[in-house]
Amino acid sequence: MSLAAVRPDEWNFPLFLHVLGAMLLVGTLLLAGLVLFSRREGRSGAGLGFRVFLLGVLPSYILMRVGAQWVESEEGFGDDGPGWLGFGYITADIGAILILLCLIITGIAARRSARAEGGGGTLVRVAGGVSYLLLAAYVVAVWAMTAKPGS
């Protein structure tokens, strides 16, 4: 008996979108973290970090979240879903708030940096730290999604 025989074909495409989005999310979060903590010859990483969040992290998150919702509606767990699903929702929804927060923070820091006001260093480091925090949370989420404890 193979897993493929267990999962109906209709689940495959939304699951593909979900996993693709999750992979891109992890990759772009790592990229954002590295960019935000980089030293760039007198320039802060705020502007570039903002673009990574806006053009990389946010679209990846949307792809992952839409795929997740689609798979869940296909599986039809209803209101009483398993624990791993709840964990996925918690990490995804808190992640959404933190990603938006990082977007705002890096946006403000980029504006300050462009006006040569300086002082964006702390904001940039906070956004970088949040990126790594999200990365750690998503590693745990990957464990929950693959091992499905309590299912």
Partner: peptide, 17 residues
Amino acid sequence: LFVHVLAAFAIAAGLTL
């Protein structure tokens, strides 16, 4: 399965970088 999938995520992250 978890480590296999996590490793696949790491490859995708490397490619993203």
